[in-house]
Amino acid sequence: MSDWHKSSYSNTGGQCVEVRETPAGADVRDTQNRDTATLSFPAAEWRALLDTER
């Protein structure tokens, strides 16, 4: 599994999310609550999100 990373677009105001890509898709978590919860997205949903943001 890959490492967690923040977007280069994240600001320094403390309201960031981190992402890690997995073979099944991607996991997302809040940088202020790393141990609380992680959202997991299947590969097709993650790709659809990325495609809409370009």
Rank of each mutant, 00 (worst) to 15 (best):
M1L: 11
S2W: 01
S2T: 15
S2D: 05
S2L: 14
D3L: 14
D3Q: 15
D3G: 13
W4K: 01
H5C: 08
H5Y: 12
H5G: 09
K6S: 13
S7Y: 06
Y9S: 12
S10Y: 01
S10V: 05
S10N: 06
N11T: 14
T12S: 13
G13N: 15
G13C: 02
Q15N: 13
C16K: 00
C16F: 03
V17E: 04
E18S: 02
V19F: 02
R20V: 02
R20W: 07
R20I: 08
R20Q: 12
R20L: 08
E21Q: 09
P23Q: 11
P23K: 07
G25I: 05
G25Q: 02
V28A: 01
V28D: 03
V28Y: 03
V28H: 00
R29Y: 07
R29K: 13
R29D: 07
R29G: 07
T31C: 12
T31K: 01
T31R: 07
N33R: 09
R34S: 00
R34Y: 00
R34C: 00
R34D: 02
D35T: 13
T36I: 11
T36Q: 11
T38Y: 04
T38C: 13
T38N: 05
L39S: 04
L39E: 02
L39D: 04
L39F: 05
F41S: 05
P42T: 02
P42D: 04
A43V: 10
A43T: 11
A44Q: 12
A44N: 11
E45F: 09
W46G: 00
W46P: 01
R47Y: 12
A48R: 09
A48Q: 07
A48I: 03
L49F: 15
L49G: 14
L50K: 10
L50W: 09
L50V: 13
D51T: 10
D51Y: 06
T52R: 14
T52M: 09
E53N: 09
E53Q: 12
E53I: 10
